[in-house]
Design a protein around this nucleic acid. Sequence first.
RNA 1: GCCCCCAUCGUCUAGUGGCCCAGGACGCGGCCCUCUCAAGGCUGAAACCGGGGUUCGAACCCCCGUGGGGGCACCA
Length: 493
Amino acid sequence: MSDLKPARVRFAPSPTGRFHIGGARTALYDFLLARQTGGQFILRIEDTDRKRYVPGAEGEIMESLRWLGLDWDEGPDIGGPYRPYRQSERTEFYQQHAENLVARGHGYYCFCTPERLSQLRKQQQKLKQPPRYDGHCRRLDPEEARGRVADGESFVIRFKTPREGSTTAVDLLRGPITVENSTLDDYILLKSDGLPVYHLAAMVDDHMMKISHVFRGSEWLPTFPLHVLIYEALDWEQPIWVHLSIFLNPSGKGKMSKRDAGVNEIYVLDLKQMGYLPEGLLNWIALMGWSYDDRTEFFTLDELIEKFSLQKLHPSPAAVDYKKLDHFNGNHIRSLAPDELADRLRPYLKMEGLEVNEGILQQITPLVQERIRTLDEAADIAGFFFHKTVEPDPSELIGKNMTREESIVATRRSYEVIESLPTIEVEPLEAALRVLAEEMNLTAGQLFGILRIAITGQRISTPLIESMEVIGKQEVLNRITRAVDLLESQAER
RNA sequence: GCCCCCAUCGUCUAGUGGCCCAGGACGCGGCCCUCUCAAGGCUGAAACCGGGGUUCGAACCCCCGUGGGGGCACCA
C-alpha cells in the first residue's frame, strides 16, 4: 500500500449502451487507486437520460466489472453510506442544489422552448456565430420567474456563467487550463423533466459522495471549466481531476467507436466470449495511457495495484492494438497453473460442442498451454482428443515427397511397431518411431507428418507423440487402421 | 466556423537539460531450436513533426506553424 491518503474514487458509467474497453480502463484506474491507497471504489450509475436508457446495460456493466475482478465497495446493488448510487433515485438532491444555485445568483430559470432554441441555433449558424444561448431568460426578474414557475410553466435551470473574465481548471496530467468565460455557455443544469444533466448531477454526487479523484474521459475537457465554476459557485472543494485520453481506432484515425464493433471487438463481454482472459485484457488496457518503467510490461492485477501511480499516466490518445492484446493474453495463459487453465478451458471446449472428458482435459492442458493465445483456440488445436473418430483428408495422408504406396507401407509398419510396444509412453514410442523412420529412409518429419494426419486429422496439432500417449494405444491403432483404409481405397479409385 | 487537448520507431511507450548518434514491448525480417503449430533464444530494419528562440548544451523549456484528436444538445 502506498503512503497516499485513502482515495475515494468512483466509476460512473451511463447505462446507454454496451460496456467497452474504454470504460474498462477508466474503471481499472479507479480501482487501482482505491485499492492501492486503501480507499473505496464506488460504482455509480448515471441514468438521468431517460431517452437513451438501455435496459440491461446496467447489468452488463456489472457483469463485465465482476468478470474483470474490479469489485466495488459501494454501489447500486450493495448500497453504502452515500446511497442511493443510481442518479435516477437522487433527483431531490439535484433539484435542491439547482435551486440553491438560483438563490445564490449563479443560476436562473429559463422558459425558452426547444423550438426557440433550435431556431436560435439555426440563425447563429447562418451568421457563423458560435451556437450559444442568447441570455433571453437571464435578464428576467427573479421574482417574476419564480411566479411563472409557481404557475406551473415549464422551465429549465441554467447556469449563470460569468460574462467576463476567465476560468482556470487544473488537470493532473495537463496542468492549468484557462479559458475565457465568454467562450462558455449558460448550460442547462436541470431539464424540464426535473432531471439533471451530467454537469449538475456528477458535480453534486462527487461532492456528496466525497470523491477525492475524478477519472473521466478527455471528452469532458471542453466543459471542465464549467464544472469548476459550479464547484466555486457552491463553495465546494474540488477533487483532483484526471482526464484520461480516449482510445483511437487501430488505424489511429478517429476515436474507437461502435462502428468498430464486429470488425474489432471493443466490448468486454465479447472479448470474454472470444477467449481472452481478464488478466490479459487488464494488462493490455492498463498499459494504454500508463506505464511503469522502460522494461516491465507483464502485470497481474495485484502487481498493478502495487505499481500504479498517477505520475506515470500519459495524456495523449492511444490507438488500440489487438495484436498486443493477443500477446498479453498468451503470456497470461502460459503463466496460469495447469489446473487453473483446465478450468478456464472447459467452457470454451463445451461451447464448441465437444464432450469434455476430465481425465483427457487434465492431460492435454500442458500440451495446449504453450501454443494458444486465446482460450477458444484450444478447440482448434486439440478438439480431436474429444472426437470419437477423425476424418483425415486422404490426400493429406501421403507423406511429403512420398508416393501413395510408400505412405501405405509407412503407415502399416507404424501400426506394427506401435502394436508391438507394451505401452506407448512418450519415450519408448518416440524412440521406436524414429528407428522405424530411419529403417525406411524417411525423415522423422515425413513419418510424423503422416501419423499426425492419421491420428489428429489435422495439419496443426499438439505434439504428436504426447498426443498419442494421451489418446491411448488402442485408439491410436484404430485411427492408423482407418488411415490405411483411406489410403488404400483411394489407391483403388 | 469557434473552443480545448495532444505530438518519440507502423503501434503502445521509456525518457522530465548533459547518462540518448534515443531504451523496451507488439508487429515485421533473418538465424537457432524443432514431429506440425507455437513457445523460447539470438539478431536486423524502424522514431525525437517543422521552424524559430532560451542555454555552454535540448527529445526534454518557450513561441509560431503543421498534423492528429476531442467538444460545441433539455446526451453522457
